[in-house]
Amino acid sequence: MSKKIEIMLSAFLFSMIAHVSGCTDKDTHNSKLQLFPIASITVDSASTIVSLYAEDSLQVGFNRLYIGMKTTDDGHEVDNAQVELIPMMDMTDMGMMHSSPFEEPSGYENGYFQGAVVFTMPSYDMGHWTVRVNFLNHHNHMQGSAVFNLIIKNSSDVKALTIGADKYIMTLIDHKEPHVGLNDFEIGLYKKQTTMSFPPVTNAMVNIAPTMPSMGHGSSNNVNPVHTSMGRYHGKVNFTMTGDWQVDVNATINDTTLLSTHYDLTVE
């Protein structure tokens, strides 16, 4: 009972404070995104500073990239531009280069142009990841490009499988802190057409089954992911306790299995 009163009281007090200081939360929507700055490059030829941010340090798997731009002369934040991403892995030891799946920035939101890259392998001594940002700044009508050198840490988010001549890539999306109960479970599924082209697979059937190897049981109430957009499949996974879980994922098209793999997740 007292808890309810306490909550009501604090809600009341909070509303008082919010009323008094009603103007202070104007710019909080930007700080909602706690972004991790990667680098800023000044492109003199286009009088534009291009800054790259991510939600965390970059790693193998699905990474959202945020691009902020300012014009150098008037310091104007660029909110109208055309932006392109090109991820590239240069394996100098093997003498080859390849790209990876990515999502083009969709538009300007909250101060950034937001896209995503699925890094398919980690950086290593002789292998360097870059992301080239091509832009057309509609504010000063200049275009240019900035190339960011990136260090990509390893993870086990990306699974790849070759079926005959076809190679498919699957990645987990946003599983940073799985908690007990129902969690969003999202994967990205892409086909490797060439070393430079990874179109999304949009017509796969994806089944998931979480299990706990140490307990020998699974959970109920899971929702198999279905395609939403750009090769992303969204479903739900239910973790009935903390501990080490394994989520089996199986993707098929017309009963042909593209990928059958599992992800190991530790639920805190």
Partner: peptide, 9 residues
């Protein structure tokens, strides 16, 4: 935690 677990299942 109890709510999440039950809601999940």
């Amino acid at each position: 935690t109890g709510r999440r677990l039950l809601e999940g299942s």
